[in-house]
C-alpha cells in the first residue's frame, strides 16, 4: 500500500489534501497543522493526558458522587454505590447502563489507550487492523462515560423539595468529569497513522 509519506508527500490528517515536500506548516486547504516539521510528540501528549485522567479517576471513585437528603437523613453514595442502589430498586437494565458507562468504559479505556501507545512505541506491526478498530471504538465510546455526570446534574436540579428530599452533587462529580475529559483528550492526541506506519514512517 502506497502512502503519502512513502511517496515523498505529506497528507493532511484532517481533510486529506496532499502537499509536496517541503510542505507548509499548515494545510493549504483547511489550515490543520501538518506533521513533519517539529519532532512528533503525539505519544507524549497521549501519556500525559492518560496519567492525568488516571489520577483524577481515583478520587472520583472514593468520594461521593451524590448526597441525598430525605426527611433530615443524609446519605452519600459513590459511583459504585449508585449502581448497587439501582440494583436494589430492581432496575437491572439501568444499573447495567450506569455500570458500563462509569466503570467498564473508563477502566477499559485506560488499558486500551495504554496498549495502543505501547504497541506504537514498540513498533509492533502485528494486528494493525484489530488495533485500528480498537482505536475507533475508544474514540467513539469514550464520551459516553459522561452519562453519570449528567445524571447527577439532572437529579440535583430536579430534587430540591426542601425537607422531603434534596439531592446535591458530591465532589466526585468534578473529578469524574475531569477524568472523562482528560482521557478524551488523550485519545484525540493519539495519531491513528502511527498504527499503520511501516519502514521510514515511524515516530521519533
Amino acid at each position: 500500500m502506497m502512502t503519502a509519506r512513502s511517496a515523498g508527500l505529506v497528507g493532511c490528517p484532517n481533510c486529506g489534501r496532499v502537499h509536496d515536500v517541503p510542505a507548509p506548516g499548515r494545510c493549504q486547504r483547511c489550515g490543520w497543522r501538518l506533521p513533519g516539521h517539529a519532532p512528533d510528540r503525539s505519544l507524549q501528549r497521549v501519556w500525559a493526558w492518560l496519567f492525568a485522567g488516571l489520577v483524577v479517576y481515583i478520587p472520583a471513585n472514593i468520594y461521593p458522587m451524590l448526597r441525598t437528603n430525605t426527611f433530615g437523613r443524609t446519605t452519600e453514595s459513590t459511583i459504585l454505590e449508585g449502581v448497587v442502589d439501582l440494583l436494589h430498586h430492581g432496575s437491572y437494565g439501568v444499573a447495567l447502563v450506569v455500570f458500563v458507562a462509569s466503570i467498564v468504559i473508563p477502566i477499559g479505556k485506560f488499558f486500551a489507550i495504554a496498549y495502543l501507545a505501547i504497541s506504537v512505541e514498540r513498533r509492533e506491526m502485528m494486528q494493525v487492523h484489530a488495533r485500528h478498530r480498537l482505536f475507533e471504538v475508544v474514540e467513539f465510546i469514550g464520551r459516553w462515560s459522561m452519562i453519570d455526570v449528567f445524571v447527577v446534574a439532572i437529579l440535583a436540579a430536579l430534587v430540591q423539595l426542601d425537607f422531603a428530599a434534596t439531592i446535591n452533587p458530591g465532589i466526585a462529580a468534578i473529578s469524574f468529569a475531569l477524568s472523562v475529559a482528560f482521557t478524551m483528550l488523550s485519545a484525540q492526541s493519539f495519531d491513528p497513522k502511527t498504527i499503520w506506519l511501516d519502514g521510514d514512517m515511524r515516530p521519533r
Binding site: M2, A4, G11, G16, V18, P192, K193
Partner: peptide, 9 residues
C-alpha cells in the same frame, strides 16, 4: 487524496 486516518494515497 491521502486517507486522513492511515495516510494511504
Amino acid at each position: 487524496v491521502a486517507c486522513p486516518t492511515c495516510d494511504a494515497l
